[in-house]
């Protein structure tokens, strides 16, 4: 139907049910139905199912029976959960700022380099397109004690005592985080560089004419105008660190998340509970907690960073 007040552009054409607008809507919804259905069946239905399963004691073999919030009370009383929770936030709280600051510095510098620019950029991007598992195994080998570990061989060549790296409850988590940061760096650099390029040159020219120094330009122009890029990367990288799994699992396959659970993130605990112990209900309760954390952290970040945009 035509909206009132809009003149009918084809007064001589008979009015049918299938107006242009309706036909367009049909097409739009026809195309949208595919992803909507896909997400409904593959994403939202299992998500809803997970909430229900978290209230049962399903072991994959017998029928799930309703046990109320028992999984949740067990989870919050589980000493392993406390450790895993701390580990997960350690990855987030250290990983996100370090990777963002590093990638910004590199992107900022790369943006000014003309000589070998493409080559350098490709070099930084290379880790991002490499399989996480392969990368994790190479780093795992770097971190080994002498006589096979590259780093420790190097250290002992100078008579410096070995670092325990993955064999230490203190250093294992930072060691794994380094590889995770390195793996994601290329992507963040590219996004930052795109953001930098998107700032119109006229602002810089105006600032120079006004006599602003490099530092003032960075603080007053570059950083504020990069805010949308930064918000995107903060949220993106936070979610990445909260969901860290590949690096940890591949670097500690003998003692997953070890030693003594010092590197185990929430996702690995969920994986073990579900597919090694077959406690699907308990694992579902853990995913609900992870979902809540991801939601809260993402919303919080969007809210905090929105204000000053």
């Amino acid at each position: 139907m035509m909206e009132p007040g809009v003149p009918d552009r084809h007064p001589d054409r008979p009015r049918t049910f299938w107006t242009m607008r309706r036909r367009q809507l049909l097409w739009v919804w026809g195309f949208l139905a595919v992803p909507v259905l896909f997400y409904g069946v593959i994403r939202f239905y299992p998500t809803g199912q997970a909430f229900w399963l978290s209230l049962t004691d399903w072991d994959l073999m017998s029928d799930p029976s309703f046990i109320g919030v028992e999984n949740y009370t067990r989870l919050f009383a589980d000493p392993q959960f406390g450790r895993v929770f701390r580990n997960t936030f350690a990855y987030l709280i250290m990983g996100t700022p370090i990777s963002l600051i590093l990638s910004f510095i590199i992107a900022y510098a790369l943006d000014r380099v003309r000589f070998g620019h493409t080559f350098l950029r490709a070099l930084y991007f290379l880790p991002f397109i490499t399989t996480a598992a392969a990368m994790a195994w190479v780093w795992r080998w770097f971190y080994q004690p002498a006589p096979i570990g590259v780093i420790n061989d190097f250290l002992s060549g100078f008579g410096i005592p070995q670092m325990a790296f993955l064999n230490s409850t203190t250093w294992a988590l930072p060691s794994i985080m380094v590889t995770a940061i390195w793996a994601g760096l290329g992507f963040q650099i590219i996004i930052f560089m795109a953001g930098l390029r998107a700032i119109p040159n006229t602002y810089y020219e105006a600032a120079r004419i006004d006599g602003l120094g490099d530092w003032a330009i960075l603080r007053r122009i570059t950083l504020p105008l990069l805010k949308p890029t930064t918000v995107f990367l903060v949220v993106f990288s936070s979610i990445g660190f909260l969901r860290i799994f590949d690096q940890v699992y591949n670097m500690t396959t003998n003692d997953p998340g070890g030693p003594l659970g010092s590197t185990k993130p929430l996702v690995l605990m969920i994986y073990q509970t579900a597919f090694s112990s077959y406690q699907m209900g308990y694992a579902a309760a853990q995913t609900v907690v992870l979902f809540t954390i991801l939601l809260v952290v993402s919303l919080l970040q969007l809210w905090v960073l929105r204000e000053r945009t």
């Binding site: 064999n167 230490s168 409850t169 003692d255 070890g258 030693p259 003594l260 073990q272 090694s276 112990s277």
Partner: peptide
Amino acid sequence: VDEAAQRQTTIDMANRILIE
């Protein structure tokens, strides 16, 4: 009853002594 989990308790038992 859960080989992986039971193995883990033994691994951790030794690690608590060897590492900590």
